[in-house]
Write a protein that binds this DNA or RNA. Structure first.
Lengths: 341, 341
DNA sequence: TTGTAGGCGTTATCAA
DNA sequence: TTGATAACGCCTACAA
């Protein structure tokens, strides 16, 4: 592999001059610079980020630790984050933990060893809190995504409480009372979506106990469970918590020969072009903002470091919180229930 | 950040002994090892991959350069690749080029500077061939994905010719003749899917010119174009080239009040749970294999290096090719055309 | 404006 | 079985 030494030899300058040419903040005689760049071009020289990191103690890499893939939400988010980070010269290192505590730990350890400058993480469990602490102690900027699982860690989250509220409120306003709310936040006692649903009931002056919350078990096909919940409760409306469950719920409706919206009203959590095609209302997220907010928070925290490195004070990491507001996309899948109430 | 020096000091050994403890291939007295590991644990020491890379000249990072995100195919693939690479201790660095030649170049340059050990890339243009050459010259193992754009670069591709063939053949066998084939490979003269469609026509003894290939312009909503093609050709069947277009085509059918399969038969290229819900036949890909094949090819090529590093011969990179075979998932969206032909 | 030289945290080679 | 030591490629004072 070509090194700056090689370039120096060809350009007849010292290695440090080559180095200077590739850091645009330093002044070099323009003739010399030309000569160096030409030599570099000829030889196919690309600065070695590893060696750079060695000296500068910054890898220029940001870690991203995700649960899984089967959610267009995450891939859109990833793409967006990457596009903003690359503008500032950062690269993205990606890893998945499958909602598994042990795998999360491995991901975090890998990121530590990789000496990432910053880490985005969708956290799994408080059990791994020690590692997050360790990272922060080592001046790795951590931003938890989607959920605010850890206190005192900067967060960009989705306001699922509001999302749940919006969906339920709209159903209630339309006159629905027997609403099945499918839920799937397997590792939380009080999933925020459900909390929002409850608030909608309260604010509409309806007893919370009237909401039919269905907690779906993990790893089991929920079609039959959902169908059962609808039928046994004579539900006139259903709210689903994510795309995979939405698909299953639509299948359940079809099996029961329930047509939307005549027999049952439907609001899906998380939007998709398919829902548009099917004319199903959805709680959508401003995806343009999501990645941008995440990247900006990270970049701000990283700047903090740079700014602070001059003095010797440890960077005061103010714990920040951005809560992204979902919105209701109205489509033809909701109408007032027939006759009764 | 804690270094092996720090650990050495606490454990009362030399730095090299600490180093040995963290490379499991070396023998160390088990008591010493215990002492060292305990000290490391206490201090929160994690080996510095950057420094490791400095010496070993291997970053342990594999690059992945993708067009975009809005395709579940890529996210599934990414997740799968990552899971296999991590088993062998490699990390994944991700970047997107949006089908843009210049951005592809930037991605590749970043990957060079990052000194990735290997690179997966969905190539955009032959224009950047020089960079791919440069990478191979520098012993970075390159595998192009999805398309075989560059000769002499190892490839894991989808056999789109076969996919197109399967779809068209089935339609023809059912008796369809007026088939609209939507196409979207904007940067190739003879998209493989279309080529396969043509072969199906030939092998069925039908003149190729009878296929109604519709080349969709980039960046324009294709709904109206597709609807127009269907109506003007009195098509009894349609084949769509990817998920976004499939959605648009379904919308087009609805607008024309064409019901599937009574008025028109439908096969989509690329499968999705939504297509299953909608009972639309699809050309699917064995996703379990895709990531595995890709990762395996890369790992084999990387092993090659290791094996070869002992001697001083440059690794002989045999250009490999894996062509992944799609298959037809039959659903209720195809039936024989009514009466005519 | 350019060159010299020391060091970043590992690995790997020699000695002991 | 361990320790001392020389790289790896770049950055950055400090000198010239």
């Amino acid at each position: 592999m070509v090194t700056s030494q090689d370039v120096a030899r060809i350009a007849n300058v010292s290695q440090s001059t080559v180095s200077r040419c590739f850091r645009n903040d330093v002044y070099v005689n323009s003739k010399t610079r030309m000569r160096v760049l030409k030599a570099a071009e000829e030889l196919g020289y690309y600065p070695n980020n590893i060696a750079r990191g060695m000296k500068s103690k910054r890898s220029g890499i940001i870690g991203l630790v995700l649960p899984d893939y089967d959610n267009i939400f995450y891939s859109t988010m990833t793409k967006s984050i990457e596009s903003y980070l690359k503008l500032k010269g950062y690269r993205l290192m990606l890893s998945y933990h499958d909602q598994d505590v042990k795998k999360e730990r491995e991901c975090l350890e890998t990121m530590m060893s990789s000496r990432v400058d910053g880490l985005f993480s969708v956290p799994v469990s408080e059990e791994n809190r020690d590692l997050y602490n360790m990272m922060e102690k080592n001046d790795i900027k951590v931003v938890q995504l989607i959920r605010k699982l850890h206190r005192d860690i900067s967060t960009v989250m989705i306001d699922d409480e509001m999302g749940g509220f919006l969906a339920a409120k709209y159903m209630l306003d339309q006159g629905h009372r027997r609403i099945v709310v499918a839920e799937f936040d397997f590792n939380e006692k009080a999933p925020m979506k459900t909390t929002g649903v409850m608030r909608a009931f309260r604010e509409s002056g309806i007893d919370e106990s009237e909401a039919h919350i269905v907690n779906l078990p993990y790893g089991v096909d929920p079609t039959a469970i959902i169908a059962g919940a609808i039928m046994s409760n004579k539900a006139t409306a259903i709210i689903t918590p994510n795309i995979p469950i939405t698909i299953k719920a639509l299948e359940a409706c079809r099996r029961q020969h329930l047509s939307i919206p005549d027999d049952i009203s439907f609001i899906a959590y998380d939007d998709s072009p398919w829902l548009d095609l099917l004319n199903i209302a959805a709680i959508a997220h401003p995806m343009d903002d999501v990645g941008k907010d995440m990247a900006n928070m990270m970049l701000t925290m990283l700047d903090h470091v740079t700014a602070n490195n001059n003095g010797k004070e440890p960077a005061i990491t103010k714990t920040d919180l951005i809560s992204i507001k979902p919105y209701l996309v109205l489509r033809g899948s909701v109408k007032a229930p027939a006759g009764d109430v």
